[in-house]
Design a protein around this nucleic acid. Structure first.
Lengths: 338, 338
DNA sequence: CAAGCTTGCGCAATCGTTTGCGCAAGCTTT
DNA sequence: AAAGCTTGCGCAAACGATTGCGCAAGCTTG
């Protein structure tokens, strides 16, 4: 910058003001500065700027695993919105490991990101506290950390899972299995609850043997469905707590020579884009993933820009997307049963 | 930091040295500093540090689209390796748009990332030049920019596509279609070439009508296969230039009531993890994606750490992964035919 | 006991910007 | 023509760390 100033024969102050258009500068000087910038291929140093301005135009994004299509899509949306607003995003994969989560949150705080989108997994308070007390705007997805002074976005996992299961009940399935997620995750527990709620509401009982824990990964779905199909007189339908596992389930069923939905009906959860293209296409309880991503980013950015609203929990609706894998044409509403 | 120094009643110099363990400090002072750090919840400012040290411990990563599983997996690996070495990665989606590419490269340069992993798409020299002349280590994937002073990692797309197609020929298919990628991408062109090479080598001719351009996205595969299957006496096999489109192709075939591999054999390209779980599992020409990611990151990081080797082009091998979608049990080697 | 070493720490410059403050020159008033 | 405004720019102090250099106190040595 000094060099630019020298070459253009002005002060660095003027160079700065020209670059930022932050006060009037004479035409001729502007031109001189601009040509000097071009000649020297000058690129401002964002660190120095950030240090002075106390902003970095970077957001941190912590997700469990960006190779899970759900988070990949979410990341893509967040990144897009950020790009629009001239922000960059730092990608962090936590693997749902509290230690990694803490490490990343702390790193992001040190890097002085302007905000954080955090897909929380465990009950990790400490890491979050550290960030908040640095006054870094943050929005937490998928988990309501009660008592936390920051926005959260959640979907009603329980109600969604319940409706998904009801859809199978409506299709006259009675022996309905559930491949659920790791029970240390609140969202997984809620979805399991919802599955059970559906039975309760229908005055039926879910056999505990029908419930098989998964890991939210594709292989987990594959192996879970195997043990679910092993016993004689097995389930005729299965609710899978996320779409990635559902893909594994579809494969596992096919590997046994069974057909979906004729032999086993399958319903997933998440609404990833891939669900349209599975064999057969996947019926799923879709999260409004685009909205979640947009809202999350906008919430963070609005706080970055000084918005001072009271933090709150935003609850979004899931919606049932009926495709072939459940073998039930029209979704009946729960209310329609009475 | 000043506050810490004050509270511990030492100079900021000492605080810095304690934090970085960069010179001997008396035990008692170390303790005083450490407790002060805890009490104040002090977190060093990475911007200031970076400014002084001229490093950011951040890498830029530019990919076309992180929601394509191939790039998602790549990103994941890169991020993992970086985490090991205490680096963060900035995620950038270029959408294969030269303008976005330039914008991102320039932004990354301003942010003074220590290095860049760049999955190049177009022929964009300018953006790359700008980075290189800033002396930022960079490795370019998927495209050899000749004359560029930086490392590149490529796979032999042409040979890979050729072998994939040969595999179909070996399976006694003669009318083999090709869903190729956008022709402005070198990798897509090479794969198309490889497809044609296979015919040439077998002294056969590929009907131009069998070649259908795609967009490397899932829907593109779906629509491409439709037009490929429309004519009477259609193809009996298809080579798809990437796995994502291949998934679309599988769906498209199923939607017409045809079966894979009995009616149409399918071979993809990329080797994404999802390929194991498609219906049927996808035969594909796999890129060594883990190696690519690791090598890319290691190359960049080694240069960050002052390695001064001559930049070179690293060529990696693809390998055929035979699953059910091609309907051919054992891959015959091209050489075995003679 | 003086000279020279070693040990342990602090001073102050530096990294590359932004920005509050003030100054000089030209213009408008009265 | 003096007083007061405008206009257009530069000076220098931050921002928060790192690090070369040097200083004082305690030791060793001859």
């Amino acid at each position: 910058m000094k060099d630019v100033a020298q070459l253009a024969d002005v002060s660095v102050t003027t160079v700065s003001h020209v670059l930022n258009k932050t006060r009037y500068v004479d035409r001729s000087l502007v031109r001189r500065v601009e040509t000097a910038v071009k000649r020297l291929r000058y690129q401002p140093n964002a660190l120095a700027r950030g240090l002075r301005r106390k902003e970095t135009r970077m957001l941190g994004m912590v997700v469990p695993d960006n190779s899970n299509p759900y988070f990949a899509e979410l990341a893509r949306i967040i990144e897009d919105v950020c790009f629009e607003s001239d922000y960059n995003v730092i990608l962090c994969n936590s693997d749902e490991d509290p230690t990694k989560e803490r490490a990343y949150l702390s790193l992001l705080a040190e890097k002085r990101v302007d905000g954080i989108v955090f897909v929380a997994s465990g009950n990790d308070r400490s890491g979050v506290e550290a960030v908040l007390q640095q006054k870094i705007p943050m929005v937490v997805l998928d988990r309501e950390l009660k008592g936390m002074k920051c926005d959260a976005i959640v979907v009603d996992n329980r109600a969604g899972a319940c409706r998904a299961t009801q859809h199978l009940l409506d299709g006259n399935h009675r022996r309905i299995g559930c491949v659920c997620g790791p029970t240390n995750l609140a969202s997984a527990r809620d979805r399991l609850q919802g599955y059970q709620d559906a039975f309760t509401k229908a005055r039926l009982r879910a056999d505990p043997k029908w419930i098989q824990p998964g890991d939210f990964h594709i292989e987990g779905g594959y192996t879970a469905i195997q043990t679910l199909l092993d016993p004689p007189n097995p389930i005729t339908a299965v609710f899978v707590a996320n779409d990635l596992m559902a893909i594994g389930v579809l494969r596992g069923i096919a590997a046994r020579g069974l057909r979906v939905p004729e032999d086993i009906a399958v319903v997933g959860f998440d609404g990833i884009a891939l669900g349209r293209y599975t064999q057969p296409p996947l019926t799923t309880m879709a999260q409004p993933i685009r909205e979640i991503g947009k809202l999350a980013t906008e919430l963070v950015l609005s706080r970055v820009n000084g918005e001072r609203k009271e933090p709150r929990i935003h609850r979004l609706e899931t919606s049932l997307v009926v495709r072939a894998s459940c073998g039930i044409a029209t979704p009946k509403r729960a209310g329609a049963k009475k």
